[in-house]
């Protein structure tokens, strides 16, 4: 039996059958990129809360604690969450299927067979572009079935999209 790299470290129960983690980790720059993206959201939210507290209230103690706690929580999440995501996000493409894992509190594994893939897209948001990263989105005929491989090195993402497109075209059927 192969030693499983990157299995969830906190898993206490061991089921007899489990989904193994996909082979590849996302790019190490992802942590910084995600942190930047989350901070872009979290800083204005925290600032707005503090500003509203400062301008519109008479600074009662309980509200000071509440506002401070909220701001700390939002900013703390933006700093901590990317590390958790990085530890858990993994992807793998075999000759037959695309396989990903993601999620922090809720783990989500997705599999789509090559023969059912309809489109392959690469996407680069402004922050991701700054860090030289890109996402690859794979859609199937299902309205619920899109699989996103996030935060790959741009070159890797383009190469992967090309490879997937070639593999998909080789597979027969109308993908429904």
């Amino acid at each position: 039996m192969r030693t499983v790299a990157g299995a969830h470290p906190r898993r206490r129960r061991t089921a007899a059958v489990m989904l193994r983690p996909p082979r590849n980790q996302v790019d190490a720059r992802a942590v910084k990129a995600w942190t930047a993206e989350l901070l872009l959201l979290a800083v204005p939210v925290a600032a707005a809360a503090v500003a509203a507290y400062w301008i519109f209230t008479s600074h009662p103690v309980w509200l000071t604690v509440l506002t401070g706690g909220f701001a700390a929580l939002v900013l703390g999440f933006a700093v901590v969450a990317p590390h958790a995501y990085y530890r858990l996000e993994r992807w793998e493409v075999t000759g037959e299927a695309v396989y990903t894992r993601k999620g922090w509190f809720t783990h989500v594994w997705r599999v789509a067979p090559m023969s059912r893939i309809q489109t392959v897209d690469t996407e680069r948001g402004p922050v991701k572009r700054l860090f030289g990263l890109a996402d690859v989105t794979v859609t199937t005929a299902s309205a619920a079935g899109a699989i996103k491989i996030e935060a790959l090195d741009h070159e890797v993402a383009v190469a992967l999209a090309e490879r997937l497109t070639a593999l998909t075209q080789a597979a027969p059927g109308d993908a429904t």
């Binding site: 059958v17 193994r20 599999v111």
Partner: peptide, 14 residues
């Protein structure tokens, strides 16, 4: 489809 991504643990602790 899902089979290749499963691991079956036989008497092996976590």
């Amino acid at each position: 489809l899902l089979g290749p991504f499963l691991t079956r643990r036989v008497g092996r602790p976590g």
